[in-house]
Design a protein around this nucleic acid. Structure first.
Lengths: 249, 249
DNA sequence: CGCCAGGTTGATTTCGCTCAAGCAATGTGG
DNA sequence: CCACATTGCTTGAGCGAAATCAACCTGGCG
């Protein structure tokens, strides 16, 4: 039900709604577009703000186009018949969501929820289709992106099948490090988590109680210290060690 | 090391090597190719036979092009640092393998092994690139394919995180049904498994011992009867019931 | 014949889930 | 301003599903 605030495509707002000045464009698939093609996007899109907890789309919703994140942080969730839910991945500014369902001509097969205040542009399906026709390299860009997503997904399948919870959580921390971490000189690390404990639990497919216990166990072994969403890791090396499977020789 | 037997592209063999007569082409991404483009494929490819156990490529190998399955059955495996291995999926005639690593310009990130005697055509990278340039809709086809693979992978992540072993195995049987099953009139089902117990275990991410026990438990409940690779399911309905999560109301 | 890989079975352990309670921070209405 | 829900997180006790360790059985094959 929360639908966010619409910001007109023609808005003069300096912080949203103009693809030509969009900070993130250069690093995404849209960077292959020419001036005139960008103008097509600019006309055909609708831009919105969302607050934490707002839903951008639900699993099962009809997919009418793609969503491009301009600012904020989005969680992509998927749930099964029994109501169990996992957090598949985080999406960041520059990421395009829903391109997969759109291209497969399918309904959305996961849901997207704002985790931070976010600005998201919606690009209408017919616009996307004409862009794909105008500029074939756009399709190849998305193809490459899909290839990478697929790798990540298969990696996740492997990990959740073979690694114990503690190793999966250590892995999650190391992934979050790249974007949210500040490495110290002496091999230590400070981290500001963008996620609640519940959501971290959902990312590695465990219950919140198990998340608490896993955090506790890392603290007991002096691998990391947690205080709210702040984490301090005294030795990055020992955190990396957690990834290794405890193997008999 | 087992490299299979090369069958020249110009071979007169009636069973392999000619894209124009290839039985599977119509149902795959290659069906969008025109006559002259097909001729390009025909020139640029190398065809080989493989016996069960032969490796088509290893995880980490350099990816020089794509492999198209003409006949047989291929298992796609992936292993982690600790030597744990899972069977990600089966690939069948018409499927193209390795397109993902190729498009991402990456090394192979999983390995492919023949599970049955198979015939596989290798299409050189430069050939694939020129085809993509000649016919942009080929790329879109692969994009759609990648989208579907991605769905499947995310579905698998969800399932292995939330469903118990027995339900995952029931699900596997139902998937195998579509290709290897013969449905009876009265809601029963006969199935000829293409996989060893070990490989089925690897598909749902469990140990072989657990596979044995799960089979036993289904037999004890008269859900299915196993004899070697033959399976008889008296009531398809009761097998489908196994998918549901045992939920408290 | 001995050997070996694939499969089954049993005993035991361990990891993560369930159920339940408690606690701190935040909000809400009288 | 206080009584009270509510929400997110933590902790404890007990349970259960699957892993582990180990033995053994089968069929194929040199």
């Amino acid at each position: 039900m929360p639908e966010g605030r619409t910001v007109g495509a023609g808005s003069k707002s300096s912080e949203c709604g103009n693809c030509f000045t969009c900070q993130t464009r250069g690093r995404t698939e849209w960077c292959v577009l020419e001036e005139d093609e960008l103008e097509v996007v600019n006309q055909g899109k609708v831009c919105r703000e969302y607050l934490p907890g707002d839903i951008i789309f639900h699993e099962g919703d009809e997919c009418r186009g793609v969503h491009c994140i301009e600012r904020g942080l989005i969680g992509v969730r998927k749930m099964d018949a029994g109501g169990n839910e996992i957090l598949l991945r985080l999406s960041h500014p520059g990421d395009t969501m829903g391109y997969r369902s759109f291209l497969a001509d399918d309904d959305h097969n996961n849901s997207a929820e704002a985790l931070e205040p976010s600005v998201i542009c919606f690009i209408d399906g017919s616009t996307v289709n004409s862009l794909l026709k105008m500029n074939p390299s756009l399709g190849l860009r998305f193809l490459r992106h899909a290839a990478n997503d697929l790798n990540a997904a298969e990696e996740k399948v492997l990990q959740s099948a073979t690694l114990p919870v503690r190793a999966r959580f250590a892995h999650l921390l190391l992934v979050l490090k790249d974007r949210y971490g500040v490495a110290g000189d002496n091999g230590d690390l400070n981290l500001e988590l963008p996620l609640s404990r519940q959501d971290m639990a959902a990312m590695i497919g465990i219950r919140p109680e198990s998340m608490s216990r896993t955090i506790r166990s890392l603290e007991d072994d002096d691998i990391a210290r947690f205080s709210g969403r702040r984490v301090h890791v005294p030795s990055l090396k020992s955190l990396v060690n957690e990834l290794e499977v405890p193997e008999g020789l």
